[in-house]
């Protein structure tokens, strides 16, 4: 069982407390009605399916209840970083460099 750092609680806690919530940084367009069918389909359905470092969302479901973002390696399950919702996407190259 992996352990996850909640950026709101500031604690590293067992995976059991958290729920996965899909790919991160997919913003719901502010005016959906102006979206073309293709754009809307992409927003709804198209995901990266990364093998390796993946930007994704988790929710501290059995804790503070907050959604937050993380970069996790889908091969090793290693978390490089977790950060609050709304914060900018961290630079992956820097993250991987720091992890070495």
């Amino acid at each position: 069982m992996i352990q996850i750092h909640c950026p709101y609680c500031g604690e590293t806690l067992p995976e059991l407390e958290f729920a996965y919530a899909g790919e991160a940084h997919i913003e719901r367009p502010l005016s959906p009605s102006e979206q073309s069918d293709e754009q809307w389909a992409e927003f709804l359905f198209l995901r990266e399916n990364v093998k390796g470092p993946h930007f994704e969302r988790w929710r501290h479901l059995h804790g503070c209840g907050r959604f937050f973002n993380a970069v996790r390696n889908t091969i090793t399950d290693r978390f490089y970083i977790t950060y609050k919702a709304g914060e900018p996407r961290p630079d992956l190259a820097t993250l991987l460099e720091e992890d070495k």
Partner: peptide, 13 residues
């Protein structure tokens, strides 16, 4: 509730 929290926290904070 999860769905509501999701929209509230991440789309309409």
């Amino acid at each position: 509730l999860n769905m509501m929290e999701d929209y509230l926290q991440t789309e309409w904070p």
